[in-house]
Design a binder for these strands. Structure first.
Lengths: 341, 341
DNA sequence: TTCATTATTGCATTCGAAGTCATTTGTCGT
DNA sequence: ACGACAAATGACTTCGAATGCAATAATGAA
């Protein structure tokens, strides 16, 4: 029985169609598309001509089934209101492109959702998983690991979890900010915290306070939950505790902007003369002239690169490659807090 | 020969493994997972128990191959620097979730890239394609159409292209803005344009100028290319043409913010008293107190809904369902331009 | 020219789930 | 208790590309 059929009305032609058109076997077509496949130059030419004529597209689904590699990487995102994350997502998709991988994105609003929705991603036999701005239950991490799906946490770390992680050195960066304040001889200092349970906030807070304490200083504190409104309100809250701080470290840029707006328009103080402000993330609008925000710049490009590298390396490997990488961040000096000396 | 194997080391168990464990056939397992499948309650129970024990996950890749529906929708995005688009992306992913579909996202920086990268998406047998903030060559649109992949353009339209589109009524909205300026009895009016070749800019510009012309007015013009810096510079450029405008309509919010910052900090004018400003998109930070931007709010939620609906409806259908939907937008009044009367 | 290599090629099988079809089991009515 | 009919089940084939293996053609060495 002839297996080959003419191109159907739907226009979806298969490798068999192409094989028939080119007068070769289906195997030849398959090999023609495989780099370094064993085909003569002449047949490869014939095949590509036939393929173009029929508008043939290899079927990635069929290929994935037999080769057991889907070339798809799952990306879990949340908190899209912080422009930092869309920017990160863009970089991920670009890097994945470059590696010949496709990104299949999952947005989760609540952490619980991640666990609920992840199975849907796993059904698609993804070759790896990146988790950003969200957490993964240990149970789920184990499940991924047992399915042979490597997981990399981006910018957060979960001790003992079955996953690698790539972070920026939150503690170190926060220490640099503390140093800056100390050297500037500020004594009334405050911290505006992000969402309290997140590892990023804990690390930034800890690094900051520790270094201040070493210098014999303490700091006021308000919580802004990583949102603009939160930062705005936190800046106002700080006013109720007596003399206003001379310097504020905000756990991210959005809150810093909220705080700055509140300080200028509601408290009628100036930045940086009355209050110095430092943020974290170096998002796009941190450089807008009205904000001109001095902030911590995580090495996002490299973090993304390392994350993708890690996933790619884990592909062939058998055992899980649990690695935690921490990359240094640096302060970008702009107008909202000036370098001392 | 026994086809079933014990769960492999990799932990990936198949429907055969489950079948063996439950003492039924593979067909039964498949049916157990299909809503309304013909299985008795008892066997379904047995199967699910076995499945849980083995950690079985149906393989979506295999299912897609035989059923010819991948349940994946391609989403092409660009211009992620405008926060409008991440917000749109999030909504899309959520709506698709709700329909049991997965989104596979492609970021393109240049328009050309879309044509280059799209074949990679098509290999994955996507069931549909959404194009946002980017354009698709007619050739590519035809190719999708011939492969039976429905395409919906989100917030842009390409006449004669083989695709549906869902837009907001850019012209109508621009007319409303013109009306607002006319009723406010402004006479010195300006328009800050986005990227000139985009359909959004053309429509907004045309609607705005037409209505002004009807009222016997004209308007100054500068180009901001849809960026903050562009808007900032454009606002300064307008100062060189004589008396500064009393009212400016910016083709998007980011430019409006740039313009506002330039007007306040460089030209020392006030908003809205010296200059009224209206933007377009109603992005998150438009409502930040310092901007408090009066702007056009497109019905994004409904646009996304209609786009997804369109794709879903096109699934079963044979012929292409070319539809162009235009949804009305409304002005959100805030402080940067007040309602007349 | 002849045999040993190496480069091409095709056949047949495989991946994992879904669906067709035929068979078996179960339920009722009489 | 028997036939009629519906529900439940399993054997087998299918989707489209990849690949091991065997067969063949091309090349080179002697």
């Amino acid at each position: 029985m002839a297996k080959a059929k003419k191109a159907s009305v739907k226009g979806k032609s298969t490798s068999y169609c192409v094989a028939e058109e080119a007068g070769v076997s289906q195997s030849a077509v398959s090999r023609a598309y495989k780099p370094g496949g064993s085909v003569s130059k002449a047949t490869r030419e014939k095949i590509f001509t036939a393929a173009k004529k029929l508008g043939y597209q290899p079927n990635a689904i069929a290929r994935s089934l037999i080769s057991k590699r889907s070339n798809m990487i799952g990306i879990v995102m949340a908190d899209i209101t912080n422009p930092f994350y869309p920017a990160v997502l863009e970089m991920f998709l670009e890097r994945l492109q470059a590696e010949g991988l496709r990104g299949i994105v999952l947005m989760a609003s609540r952490d619980q959702q991640v666990d609920d929705l992840l199975p849907q991603l796993l059904e698609y036999q993804i070759d790896g998983l990146v988790i950003t701005s969200a957490t993964l239950s240990t149970a789920m991490a184990d499940r991924c690991s047992s399915m042979g799906v490597p997981v990399v946490l981006f910018n957060r770390s979960i001790p003992d979890s079955n996953s690698s992680s790539v972070c920026c050195d939150n503690q170190g960066a926060a220490r640099q900010v503390a140093d800056l304040f100390v050297k500037s001889e500020f004594t009334r200092i405050a911290y505006i915290a992000g969402v309290e349970e997140t590892s990023t906030n804990r690390e930034r807070e800890e690094g900051f306070y520790r270094r201040l304490k070493n210098a014999g200083l303490s700091a006021d504190r308000a919580v802004g939950n990583y949102t603009y409104e939160g930062g705005y309100q936190a800046a106002l809250d700080l006013a109720e505790k007596g003399d206003y701080p001379e310097a504020i470290f905000c756990a991210n840029d959005i809150m810093a902007m909220g705080a700055m707006d509140a300080i200028r328009s509601r408290l009628n103080l100036t930045v940086p003369d009355d209050v110095a402000i430092v943020g974290f993330d170096d998002i796009e609008n941190a450089s807008w002239p009205l904000y001109d925000l001095t902030t911590v710049q995580p090495p996002v490009e490299r973090m993304v690169q390392r994350t993708v590298d890690n996933l790619v390396e884990s592909q062939g490997a058998e055992g899980p490659q649990q690695v935690t990488e921490t990359l240094a961040a640096r302060i970008v000096f702009r107008g909202s807090a000036v370098a001392p000396g």
